[in-house]
Amino acid sequence: MAERWRHLRSVPEARLLGAVVLLSVILAITTPRFATVQNLMDLATSTAFTGILATGLLVVLVSGGVDISFAATASITQYIGLTLANHGVIGWSGLIFVCLLIGALLGLVNAVLVSTLRLSSIIVTIATQSLFYGLLMSVTKGQDIYSLPDWFSEGLHWVFYTDSHGAQQALNFQIVSLVVVVAFTWWMMSRTSVGRQIVAMGGNPEAARRVGFKVFQLNLIVYCFMGMIAGLASLVHAQYVQSVSPSALVGRELDVLAAVVLGGASLNGGVGSVPGTALGVVLLAVLQNGLALLGVSSYWSELCTGIVILVAVATMARQRAHRKAVLQEVVA
């Protein structure tokens, strides 16, 4: 039993889960509002955008790359998609399709450049981020779209619970998208051949190539997937804030990266899991929600987030060093 407990403690996901549960219990006791259905639904709705993007970015990190351009991609998909929707050309399904398609195309650009330029993916995607974002801002002149089609502003709702006062609790577009993306990505990464190949490629690209994996095709899948995820996330965001602003999303890339890293993914590739990422996102979201509920000024929430990130990365680095020392002892 003690052995199993020690093993569990060394699993990063278990430690994260412990942190989330501990934080939630403290918040549930100290603030009356935290553990209400309403608050948790609001929390899930507002976190969906980050959560969806983090799941996509995880796949890129596991493959051994980084993508910085996803926020620029999302800004483009939401602008084009909702401009078309405003002209009455497309409805819900058309809108989602267009956003996924444009996201995939922009991801294709990243994939081709990453595969051919022999530059690290972080540099390539910084360049494409500048390229995409600059073009979007030049074409749109930075103008926001405030009036959206009624059916889009209305959103999608699936009522699952009506309480005695007649107040309804409904799953909305944000939450459903988040759940679908997380479930699909988890399935893809752990249960399909493509997903396992992506993990293997991230672990050792040269070995993957020699074994006969089609590295270019895998990169294509990874970056197009990230682009499509960005496309969907852009709709989730636009529906949530009820407007489209071309400059609203760019600059949040590193926050998403922080959440994924907090979830245990390595920047060297090959390491990282969907549940871990989800827990990383949840931890940061619960932390900020909790600080707000406890009445801490929102000006200090960024500092708290930063401290959590620093403590987490330092702990992970120490563990890795410890594991290495143990391994060396065993070898010697």
Binding site: A258, L303, T305, G306, I309
Partner: peptide
């Protein structure tokens, strides 16, 4: 990762 964390702390 280290400087991502310190960036957030310093800005915070």
């Amino acid at each position: 990762l280290a400087t991502l964390g310190s960036m957030t702390v310093v800005k915070g």
